[in-house]
Amino acid sequence: MKINVTVNGTAHEVEVEARTLLVHMIREILNLTGTHIGCDTSSCGACTILLNGKSVKSCTVLAVQANGKSITTIEGLATAEGLHPLQEGFKENHGLHCGFCTPGMILRASELLANNPNPTEEQIRWGISGNLCRCTGYNNIVKSIQYAAAKMRGDALPSTEPVFV
C-alpha cells in the first residue's frame, strides 16, 4: 500500500507492506541508514526518530502509522548553518565511541531538551533511560546534552576538557 510521509522536510510517497516496520521503511526503502537497529524488543532506542516532533522507537511503529506525518532522522538535523547543537555537543564532549547508539540518543535528547531546556543531570539520565549505550558509560553523553542545552539556551558554553580527580 502507498503512504505519504515527510522525511527531513521532503515529501515522499512510499510503497510498503501493511506489516513493514517504520525503521525498515526508513533504512531500506528511503536508504537513510543513520537510524539503527539494536534489538527486537523495543529496548535499546538505537532506532529512535522524531515522529511529528515526538521521539519514538521506529522499530515499534508500523510504517502505515506514519502516514500523513512528518519524520526527522539524524540525517535531517544539521542545517546549512552547521551541526545541530546536540551533534556538536556529542563531538566536543566525546559523547560517543562506536557511534551506533548516537543517532537515537541525539534524537531522544532533542525531544528531552524541547520539553525541558535546562534539565538536571538526574533528569537527563532518566530522560535517556530508554536508550542503551554499551560503550560510553553515559558520563559524557550527559555532558554532551548539558553542553547542547547551554548552547540552545544561548548560555556560556561549559568547558569540554576532561576533568580528572
Partner: peptide, 23 residues
C-alpha cells in the same frame, strides 16, 4: 592532547557505515 575525535564527524551525522547499511 585531548584531541576531539576525527571519526565522530560521520557518526554524529548518521553517516557511519555499518555492515547492515550495505546494499
Amino acid at each position: 592532547h585531548s584531541l576531539k575525535r576525527k571519526e565522530d564527524v560521520r557518526f554524529i551525522q548518521g553517516a557511519g557505515h555499518y555492515v547492515d547499511d550495505i546494499k
